[in-house]
Amino acid sequence: MKSYFCAQHDLVAATIQAGHWPTAADPALRAHVESCPSCSDLVLVAQTLRQARTEYAQSARLASPGILWWRAQVRRRNSALESVSRPVAVAEGVALLILLVAVIAFAAWQHDQVAAWLGTVFGPLSNIAQIPGALMVGLGTLLVFGGFAVYLLLAKE
């Protein structure tokens, strides 16, 4: 396997990062860099990027830290409110579901009375009593759970 890495690499890198290159660097290390292609690349790239970093950093136009602080606070509070309201929304949904199930169960159990009552309230629909109970329960379930799904979607929005 070809060896890519020079043994002096870390020392050269540390010297550059410490800002000692080239004036305060060991002469032997400088001589090595002149003869080593890998370390020569390292010096060229590291020095160029260090210089570029200083120049780019000066051209940055920074927002006020106060504005960022305020934005972070607003976001934290919104997140807190959301986390508090989430369990309440879940409890609301569960309660509504239980209520709907109870209504369906009651309608199925007291099918004849419910149908008769509906017939007195809605005259033209008095023949509703002739609809089979199972079909009534199925339609009711579909209607109720469909409404519940719509409610959940709207609540999410």
């Binding site: 970093r53 780019y56 950093a57 830290p65 602080w69 972070a72 934290r76 508090v84």
Partner: peptide, 26 residues
């Protein structure tokens, strides 16, 4: 937890921001 003040106060954040923002932007 959510409403409690963050562990870094505004003054410390401002100092940290001024030391680091230009480097992060670059």
């Amino acid at each position: 937890e959510a409403i409690a003040e963050p562990p870094m106060d505004e003054e410390a954040f401002t100092a940290f921001y001024e030391r680091t923002a230009r480097q992060v932007w670059a």
